[in-house]
Amino acid sequence: MTAVAAPVAATAPRERERRRWAPLLWLAPPMLVVLGFFCYPLALVVRQSLVSESGEVGLAVWRHVVTSPEFTAALGRTVLLSVGATAGCVLLGTFLALVLAFTPFPGARVVSRVVDAVLAFPSFLIALSFTFLYGSAGVLNAALGGGAGGPVDFLYGPWGVLLAEVTFYTPFVMRPVLAAFAQVPSAQLDVAASLGARPWRVLRQVVLPEAWPALASGTCLTLLMTMNEFGIVLFVGAKDVITLPMLVHTKGIVTFDYPAACVVAVVNVVLSVALYTVHRWVFRVLGTNRAGEGRAGAGLDPA
């Protein structure tokens, strides 16, 4: 015993030292990638926003940009669009997920696959297809007999962008909500009905409370993604729909006003990181709560 233990004891201090530092050393390469290509450039953006084109350091650029009407308009539009689109996605996504999960029909699986597929699509695809559906020479106008320049003319405005975002991001709400619905044992719905509860009561009192964490975190994520959406806005190309990312793009590579672009970028990042923090918090706090319940219930579940 001692014969084996002795050499271990002799190398122990150095070994312990190595144990402590090895994981950190292993972490260095991937962290260098993130720090070098993400954190460092982002820090430079913040610095750039504080330096005017003439080289003065200060809040001059900030003052100028933040008070400009185009910025306030873009900010307001971004918030309105993302809140509106998210509301639409959550309502529509919850309804569609409810039907898919609790009143499945032949072909429901195919629909689920389509929903999954949308997640792998680029968002500009929707904007492009909207041109054919609702554009001035689109299907809807043709169907309404207008020909070119028909009666439907909302595409090249905020409503077009809003509807496109609802179309694209609804699947992003549906997936977590469907997963949450799948966690509700069908026996609970059966028992609730046997106790005399009508479908509406079962939905409100049994199903939705279970899906609430998924809905909350899905809502945050959708708010975040719609706020940062660029492809749809770019492709719809509506003159009066300038969002924050669009403004960064314009300032950055159309007018080459880097300091102003950086100010807008910083505002955009702060907003979306705040939303992201809320999302992570909701996910962690409500998610673990539920997971605890799930584990407690799983003990009884033979499946």
Binding site: P185, A187, V191, A192, Q205, E293, G297, L300
Partner: peptide
């Protein structure tokens, strides 16, 4: 109006 008790009880967890 029947009383039903299922295998894993299906108590409403919340």
């Amino acid at each position: 109006g029947l009383g039903v008790v299922v295998q894993n009880y299906a108590l409403f967890p919340h």
